[in-house]
């Protein structure tokens, strides 16, 4: 049986008075890739960011309904948000390495967890960089600034940085949208490998990409979850007219 890693129930989210998510209920299975698609502004990022409580940073956000990770309601008032984010990592649309060396970027997570053991750090950094398929490109310049890497490399470095914290879930918000085709395909390949060990939720505006890499696809429209199913099903035989219209490129 496939474990349901993330589950939301009747979730509403407001920015001030403006509703951004409208009654979203979804179950996301463990160790699969789930893609969120939909036209821009439909609430994909908003939904993704509420899974590791990144929306807490925005004062105006109000959330109703429940979100469970491993059957724990993550909006419960006893939840330790810091630890939650260690468990639910995130890769952003725009690659955002720190202005530090490549090594220090990847070692950031372990270090804030109190790991200052040099050889252990080295091990973690190497493993994370390997897992993120960037080791060969940077192994000779680990102590150069991360800002000198290309966009695609920076993004994979950010993925390595997330892996180094050893999360269970990785949220990705259009991780390849700003990249060239070659980098994009590298990232896609990487995602495919990562799902062996991680539950991945990825936002993409690129429908071919979603079709290529995901097991499940959720289609959002105006803050509502219109349709959610196996990717194959969504792309070949969607239940809803809106989904079909979107996938066939009639809007969005």
């Amino acid at each position: 049986m496939i474990l349901q890693k993330i589950r939301t129930e009747n979730m509403y989210l407001y920015y001030g008075n403006k509703m951004a998510l409208n009654n979203v209920s979804i179950s996301i299975p463990e160790k699969q890739v789930t893609a969120l698609i939909g036209p821009s502004g439909c609430g994909k990022s908003t939904f993704l960011r509420s899974l590791n409580r990144m929306n807490d940073l925005i004062d105006s956000v109000k959330i109703e309904g429940n979100i469970f990770v491993d059957d724990i309601n993550i909006y419960d008032k006893n939840i330790d948000v810091v630890n939650l984010r260690k468990k639910v990592g995130m890769v952003f649309q725009k690659s955002n390495p720190f202005a530090k060396s490549i090594f220090d970027n990847v070692a950031y997570g372990p270090r804030i967890n109190g790991n200052n053991n040099k050889s252990e750090l080295k091990e973690i950094v190497e493993k994370s960089l390997r897992d993120a398929a960037i080791w060969d490109e940077v192994k000779d310049r680990l102590h150069d600034s991360a800002m000198g890497l290309s966009g695609g490399q920076q993004q994979r470095l950010c993925i390595a940085r997330t892996l180094a914290v050893d999360p269970e879930i990785i949220l990705m918000d259009e991780p390849a949208s700003a990249l060239d085709p070659i980098s994009t395909s590298k990232i896609e390949e990487l995602i495919f490998q990562l799902k062996e060990n991680f539950t991945i939720v990825i936002v993409t505006h690129n429908m071919q990409q979603a079709a290529r890499i995901s097991d499940n696809t959720a289609f959002f429209y105006l803050g509502e979850l219109i349709e959610y199913n196996k990717t194959k099903k969504i792309y070949t035989n969607p239940d809803k007219k809106q989904t079909e219209d979107y996938i066939s490129g009639r809007f969005g």
Binding site: V69, I72, I74, D76, N78, I79, D80, V82, N83, L84, K86, K87, D166, E168, N197
Partner: peptide
Amino acid sequence: MNELKQKIDITKKKFRW
């Protein structure tokens, strides 16, 4: 890999001095 790692407890607010 997931089986090996010790699970992070998120259900209790940790006090950070």
